[in-house]
Design a binder for these strands. Structure first.
Lengths: 231, 231
DNA sequence: TATAAGACATGATATAGATCAATAAATATG
DNA sequence: CATATTTATTGATCTATATCATGTCTTATA
């Protein structure tokens, strides 16, 4: 009997690749004619929460954070590598507003797709619309699962979960250089920077991970997984 | 200049009503021929997290909780009154699984729409697909906003927020009988039942609300709003 | 290269909210 | 109707994590 899937906070979208494959040659041409490729430098803002979304953005390469902000503080909703879309929830009719901001962790190349063209494609190509629905479902499930994990896990579990996620889904390696500050790790886990540092030190002392500045190496994945589930 | 919208956790879906209006007479007939109307009694489970979703459910009347559960505990994702759909995120192709459970707070009448028919309608009617996309966007924004509010507000703010939401969006009255136990109020706010009780008592003493068992009355809405924002 | 500014680290302390314990009230059940 | 069971409430205590303080290390900048 299959073991119940653990409550982790990280599931990447599988449907993006299928999305554009549904387009006809004509539609592909329409798309190409209505997109701009823009290079962003590390540290630049890609879109700002609350502003009008004139484009849906596709990440060709680079690493991006999606986050919500208020006077009180920020929450990083997700970290997105190449191959993902930014701004889908701005498709909402009569309300094309970015509900979050995006920031480039690394130099990024983005395709900015005119949102009107994106909507037109949804209206004229059912398979495309269906794939967009798939994407939105995945996003929804991901956000919910992450939200649930947040309410169930405490600090150690959240950090472990986050490290597992970064390793498995973003970098796909046990060793990786993480372009997030400790403060940002805090915003990703809902903790304070001090707490993050203490927990990372604990993991290091317990020989679960190795850390050298921004380079993380997971040396006891099983243990980390346990902490993520029961810590 | 318009004041920035506050970080509350409650936005109801406006698009459901538009959704089925897009269907042609033939499609409406197809829908009618492939749905069952089922009455559920108060306390019954409408769908169970992890099970195959054979239907999308429309709430004709009653009040429903949508929640995620694990051995560790539960989180109420939202409370849905009549006019809403349950199970949209199960539309994901090749993965028609309910990602949450649903429970009837009151006697409910639901229309169970065969998920294959629902998907067929998405494929054959672009306007319908577009409205489903709108719905999914709204859900996504709602979940994100609630998640963000959870990470920013502490106990008093969360309870105030929840009461405002129930009053404004669910019952649309300042006085309402709430069919949730204190334990469920805890699962809705991510606190313990004891904390919920203490905070409600505080609100009562401060003459912000009146409580008599399950009947709540908001007597100082402005104050409650303030607590929700800055508490 | 010096100096400033930010990031990282660690210890001491404070506190919000959980946990535990003990009734009381409400609801269910034989 | 009496008894059992669940739910609500209140108080005492504990603890996870935030906050505050201080110092070092690293990176930017003049």
């Amino acid at each position: 009997m299959k073991r119940e899937e653990s409550t982790n906070s990280c599931t990447l979208n599988t449907a993006v690749e299928n999305c554009f494959q549904t387009l006809t040659d004509d539609e592909m041409l329409l798309l190409e004619n209505n997109l701009v490729v823009v290079n962003y430098k590390k540290g630049e803002i890609l879109c700002k929460q609350g502003t009008l979304a004139s484009h849906i953005m596709y990440i060709c390469n680079g690493l991006v954070k999606i986050y919500m902000e208020s006077e009180a503080g920020s929450l990083i909703l997700k970290v997105l590598p190449a191959g993902n879309l930014i701004g889908l929830s701005a498709l909402l009719d009569n309300n094309n507003i970015f509900r979050y901001s995006a920031y480039a962790y690394q130099d990024c190349k983005l395709r900015l797709i005119d949102i009107r063209v994106f909507k037109q494609l949804i209206r004229q190509n059912n398979s495309f619309a269906n794939q967009v629905i798939n994407l939105l479902c995945e996003n929804q499930i991901q956000t919910q699962t992450r939200f649930f994990a947040f309410t169930q896990k405490q600090s150690f579990g959240r950090i472990a979960d986050t490290l597992m996620c970064l390793s498995n889904n973003i970098f796909k390696m046990d060793e990786f250089e993480l372009p997030l500050s400790r403060k940002e790790l805090a915003e990703l886990t809902g903790l304070t920077p001090e707490s993050v540092i203490r927990i990372l030190s604990k993991f290091k002392n317990d020989r679960v991970i190795e850390i050298d500045g921004k380079v993380f190496k997971i040396i006891n994945k099983k243990k980390l997984q346990q902490i993520s589930e029961y810590g």
